[in-house]
Amino acid sequence: MNIYPEEFSAIFALGENFFSQGYYKKAQTIFHGLIALDNTNHMASIAYGESLLMDGQSTKALAHFSESRKLFPASHRILLGGAKACILLDRKSDAKDFLQPIITGHIKVTPDLSREIQDLIARIA
């Protein structure tokens, strides 16, 4: 089944709304459905992983971020999400592996995320 871009953005907005209001299970359902419809969209992938993390499903989130990393290796949000999941699962070496491309500068991040990255680096040190 295909999905048109305007339909995708409308449903994604609904998922974001659920996420911002704290309905993480509903947000998961929306984002999972969107990934099933179009797995080339990295925003849906990030949002699904983040909603899993917020719902406390760190193992599932890590599995998802690891899979997504193969599809979108240049996405810094996926790397950050993976690192967060590893830290929550107390797997510091895996978290370091996720953060490595950002620390070495291979993948550049937006300035607003620098503080979040510093916080993550401090946790794995």
């Binding site: 999905i3 048109y4 339909e7 953005s9 409308a10 449903i11 907005a13 609904l14």
Partner: peptide, 12 residues
């Protein structure tokens, strides 16, 4: 905002 996008969701 969602009201404006309702049509797309209904179409889907």
């Amino acid at each position: 905002e969602l009201k404006l996008e309702l049509k797309s969701i209904k179409n889907f």
